[in-house]
Design a protein around this nucleic acid. Structure first.
Length: 325
DNA sequence: TAGGCCATCTGGTCCT
DNA sequence: AGGACCAGATGGCCTA
């Protein structure tokens, strides 16, 4: 008897504030999760705009409702366990809606802040592309790989011009992002089926649970796109300090060395080709670890520039144009 | 048209 | 009570 009585009370009154709001805030198609532009269009404007007269009306209605049902409600409440739940009056409903809208705004702002931080992270990534923005997940993966690659380089075990450096950068990245990095570095793809563990053991890729992630960038690359900002490597060289002091300046100074890569907007993309691709004036002191055939680089750059509207700056442009025309 | 990516809303949890 | 944070749900946009 009591059980059924309580059950009726629950069905009629134990409705959470948000359940109440669901009915009120539903979009015309009955969906409560309405895309932002629907709200921006004024479908669900914040209730802070509600006038004071409306607020007073709400309070009066609240009192009337409570007067008539107070006695029976007290009886119901005494039979229920747990915290006493307040009835969802219109005034309370409005307050809750306002709170929810404020929370939504805060959440939006928070996510915008998160996106801004992610954009800052993108800006210091070694690869930039005006047409192909790295996704959030790929940005994070590349950032992690970048840290690993730089760590390896600082430890002295990896040249920033080496293929292994690029492969470290590409660990666990999607094929398009791998292509982007490869295109930026103007290198060929990683051999099919090659796993990171097979190349170098430092800082292997791990998944969210700490397990090793296989290197999934097999096959030939689709056309690469993007530019490689060698300023980051220059920054690394500054960090490494004396290691490069014995080399002639032109080998490392592609210009703008003094610009801190991690402050403000990224420095303009610089060509890394002076170290990675055959050039007119190869350095006798610091030859690239791998010599890549002009045809491969040529092909990559042609595909990059023609298909993805990416402009690779620096000396390589002249090199490339001389071959393509 | 399916799938990836994204922005937003939402409700729950934790903390102050 | 309210804010921060998180994860799930949802729908829009874009691309292959």
């Amino acid at each position: 008897m009591i059980k059924s009585y309580v059950r009726v009370a629950e069905e009629e009154e134990d409705v959470s504030p948000l359940q109440w709001l669901k009915g009120e805030m539903s979009s015309p198609d009955g969906n409560t999760s309405v895309p932002s532009h629907h709200y921006r269009a004024g479908v669900n404007q914040p209730t802070q705009e509600m006038g004071s007269e409306d607020a007073e009306e709400e309070e009066e209605e609240e009192e009337e409702e409570e007067d008539g049902e107070e006695a029976q409600e007290d009886e119901n409440e005494s039979r229920r366990r747990g915290p006493k739940k307040k009835r969802m009056t219109k005034a309370r409903q409005e307050r809750f809606r306002a709170r929810r809208i404020k929370a939504n705004a805060r959440e939006r702002s928070r996510m915008h802040g998160l996106n801004d931080a992610l954009e800052n992270l993108r800006s210091i990534m070694p690869c930039h592309s005006k047409t192909q923005k790295l996704s959030k997940i790929e940005t994070l993966r590349l950032a992690r790989n970048y840290i690993c690659a730089l760590t390896e380089a600082l430890d002295g075990g990896l040249s920033t011009e080496s293929r292994a450096f690029m492969e470290t950068l590409c660990k666990g990245l999607s094929q398009p992002t791998t292509n982007l990095v490869a295109g930026c570095l103007q290198l060929g793809p990683a051999p099919a089926g090659m796993r990171s563990e097979d190349r170098h053991g430092v800082c292997p890729p791990h998944n969210a649970h700490g397990g090793t992630v296989s290197y999934t960038s097999p096959g030939l690359p689709s056309p690469p796109y993007g530019t490689y900002d060698s300023a980051h490597l220059l920054h690394l060289r500054a960090m490494k300090g004396r290691q490069y002091e014995n080399h002639s300046p032109h080998e490392y100074n592609a210009g703008g060395v003094g610009t801190p890569p991690y402050d403000g907007p990224p420095t303009p993309p610089l060509s890394i080709s002076s170290n990675l691709v055959p050039k007119q004036e190869p350095s006798p002191h610091y030859p690239p670890p791998h010599q890549y055939s002009p045809s491969l680089v040529d092909q990559a750059l042609y595909q990059t520039q023609s298909r993805y509207d990416v402009h690779l700056e620096g000396p390589y442009d002249s090199y490339h144009s001389a071959h393509m025309i």
